[in-house]
Amino acid sequence: MNLFGIIGRSTINFLQVIGRISIFTYKAILSCILPPYYFQIFLKQIVEIGYYSLPVVGLTTLFSGMVLALQSHTGFTRFSAEGAVATVVALSLTRELGPVLAGLMVSGRIGASIAAEISTMRVTEQIDALKTLATDPFKYLIAPRIVASILCLPTLVLVGDLVGIYGGYLVGVYKLGFNSTTYLDQTTIYLQPIDIISGLVKAAVFGFLIALMGCYHGYHSGRGAQGVGAATTNAVVSSSILILITNYLLTELFFV
């Protein structure tokens, strides 16, 4: 096989995947906008994605906030800037760590679960059964998951931000000996609305990407148990990579 053949075939395959994802995204967005709406499924997804992810996101951000306080204190002590610890913890969590960590954790939990569920339905012909019962799988399966994920991620990030800042506060006050009032003042004084808003916008975009990749890989899964396994892995890997790439692009957008 010649080199040009390999390059050509790879390029065509890559473009085909991009095309399939683009068409899937277009149909998914249309399904989110146009009726019928399945509120019961949507509420179930809110509980599944939002409520059940709270412990995972809470624990992740709590310990991240605590580590951040410890590490930044180590660094700042070297040039006598210990006072900036609280501000750095708050800014890092709201602008960056909160959305990215929550996104990656939810991607592992929810992206995998969505892909496994939908691909199992594909393999066992339940998606075809939906169609024969005059129900559009995009509206019934995909739209509620995407909308729920877009709404849940910012809420999770908001909770994660608070828990993470509290983690930093615990370490700052009880381990590093900061005054409680001073630490809280330092946390809020330099924090601006854009810091929180940019984190929440990122979270909503990550929520969309997680659900979209879970649904896409589940819907287009191969046959059998291997197909389900591959769909789950691909959903988590692709949504994690997309989260990191989109995070940089959005950070540039919000960079002030």
């Binding site: 066992t124 012909e125 339940q126 075809d128 059964a129 024969t132």
Partner: peptide, 12 residues
Amino acid sequence: FGFMFQNAALFD
């Protein structure tokens, strides 16, 4: 059309 699938395809 009503469609009865080979493996029944019930919603589990």
